[in-house]
């Protein structure tokens, strides 16, 4: 199985070297950095270190960067894409678990989840995660313990879906869409670190907007995706 690690990077100059070093040392898979038109010297670092990277001429956000990675995977015939954040929060040693789970259980999507064996801590962020978890359960009947996790593996079926449907984002509502399409989604336990450098994309206002968008999308849009016979 050919596996590609997609690392979306927007202004991650402080984290990207560490992330790639981690991937190179702790896994044996190919990687691609998708530089989403960073304004800092992310691209310079990629050139100097001879990293394998794609550079987008216009900044278009995370979804676009992931989709770009999917298109690259399709062009170079990869079977699996694993989304891996460039901000140093994910650990490459869990990549193998995701790939193994995918092969052994014949899953279409595998989520690197923080809470398979562990309990969710109580915080505002996790409260949001709980709401999304509840709504996913309400609409699909399936239990995903860490729906907002950014570490996910997709197989060919999911990759094609991502390329052909521009409304799909690497967010929880897409999981509901995939459930409705009849894809198999599983979780494996991973650890995540706190962000060391740079700012998180989500501030308070953005978080509220994010929650609103997710709840709305899951309840009123993804919930009515029709199942395709395949």
């Amino acid at each position: 199985m050919k596996v590609l690690i997609v690392v979306p990077a927007y202004n991650e100059a402080l984290n990207i070297e560490k992330t790639i070093k981690d991937i190179k040392e702790n896994s044996c898979y190919d990687y691609i950095i998708v530089n989403d038109c960073s304004t800092d010297n992310t691209e310079e670092i990629c050139i100097n270190n001879k990293y394998n990277y794609l550079s987008l001429p216009v900044n278009y956000g995370l979804s676009s960067a992931i989709q770009m990675g999917m298109k690259y995977a399709k062009k170079y015939n990869y079977d699996t894409v694993i989304q891996f954040d460039g901000d140093g929060q994910h650990s490459a040693k869990y990549l193998e678990d995701i790939v193994k789970k995918m092969e052994n259980d014949n899953c279409d999507i595998v989520i690197g989840s923080r809470f398979v064996n562990k309990k969710k801590p109580k915080s505002i962020r996790m409260f949001g995660s709980n709401i999304i978890e509840f709504i996913i359960r309400l609409t699909t009947g399936k239990k995903i313990k860490d729906p907002t996790s950014g570490m996910r593996g997709y197989n060919k079926k999911a990759i094609d879906e991502f390329i052909n449907n521009p409304s799909l984002t690497p967010e929880p509502d897409t999981l509901v869409y995939f459930y409705k399409k009849g894809l198999k989604i599983e979780e494996v336990q991973v650890e995540m670190k706190e962000r060391e450098f740079g700012e998180s994309y989500l501030n308070t206002l953005k978080s509220i907007e994010y929650m609103f968008n997710m709840v709305f999308s899951i309840l009123f849009i993804r919930n009515f995706s029709r199942k395709r016979c395949k």
Partner: peptide
């Protein structure tokens, strides 16, 4: 928006 995004991706893959 969608068209520009696709162009964006196309250029990026071309320049790779």
């Amino acid at each position: 928006n969608e068209k520009i995004k696709n162009l964006n991706h196309y250029i990026s893959l071309k320049e790779y």
